[in-house]
């Protein structure tokens, strides 16, 4: 890898710009897409690799190429700068996620409690909407306070985020479903919310709950059966 290509790749990563590294395996010649113009089949393979977040191979005119996607990190937006959030941050970071914490309560969302983490003190609906959650984003609400959680969930439900989780018991969630329905969200839409949040590992402590949340996010992201919840069962519970 040439110093120029390494610098360009690292610059794209710093700018959180998706790029694919294309390597001709016979001699190690490399290109960065979309920065460099490449033959159409390579460009198509690069776009697909980025979309699927999966490396691939392509043979073009007898030459084998390796298509290596470099997407920006997956994101977790945590609503609620609470104790469980403090436990979730390091687990999320170790798993490769970029973390943002949203909480208008400045006493909670402090740099002391969340060193090095992006903190947003706007009201939760504006904050979550401004972060524009996409298919590579998970949103978790942890405040346990409807006036903070609900607007955050409202914004999350209007986005394409791949995971929405909400802290609270089944009873709390039943009341939440009623409020979100009142706000105009359909049953199908509300069924996107994982609540009670996290895989059922009988978690008790804040770190254990954080672990169950992170495990559920990974399960959903990877399409594991554990990450799926039957909407009917959730409603009946």
């Amino acid at each position: 890898m040439t110093p120029e290509l390494l610098a360009a790749l690292q610059e794209a990563q710093a700018e959180k710009r998706p790029v694919a590294l294309l390597t001709r395996l016979s001699d190690g010649h490399q290109l960065l897409w979309p920065d460099s113009a490449v033959p159409a089949p390579l460009a198509e393979a690069a776009a697909a690799a980025l979309r699927e977040d999966e490396a691939g191979n392509l043979t073009l005119e007898g030459e084998a190429w390796f298509i290596h996607p470099h997407n920006p990190p997956l994101r977790i937006v945590i609503v609620g700068a609470v104790h469980i959030a403090q436990a979730l941050v390091p687990i999320a970071q170790a798993t490769g996620y970029a973390v943002t914490v949203v909480d208008p309560r400045r006493a909670w969302a402090t740099a002391e409690r969340f060193p090095g983490i992006t903190l947003i003190h706007e009201w939760t609906d504006d904050a979550v909407a401004a972060l524009a959650p996409d298919v590579r984003t998970a949103v978790v609400t942890l405040t346990h306070d409807p006036k903070l959680d609900d607007p955050g969930l409202d914004a999350a439900l209007k986005s394409d985020c791949f995971y929405i989780g909400a802290l609270g018991s089944r009873r709390t969630h039943a009341k939440r479903v009623a409020r979100l329905t009142e706000m105009g969200h359909s049953a199908d839409s509300i069924a996107r919310i994982h609540a009670p949040v996290g895989l059922n590992i009988e978690a008790v402590t804040a770190p254990e709950i954080a672990l169950s949340i992170m495990a559920e996010i990974v399960a959903v992201r990877r399409g594991a059966a554990l990450g799926r919840r039957a909407p009917a069962a959730a409603a009946a519970a």
Binding site: L6, L9, Q10, Q13, H70, N71, P73, Q93, G96, A98
Partner: peptide, 8 residues
């Protein structure tokens, strides 16, 4: 930071 990015 993904693990691949970290190695780079």
């Amino acid at each position: 930071m993904s693990d691949s990015e970290d190695v780079l």
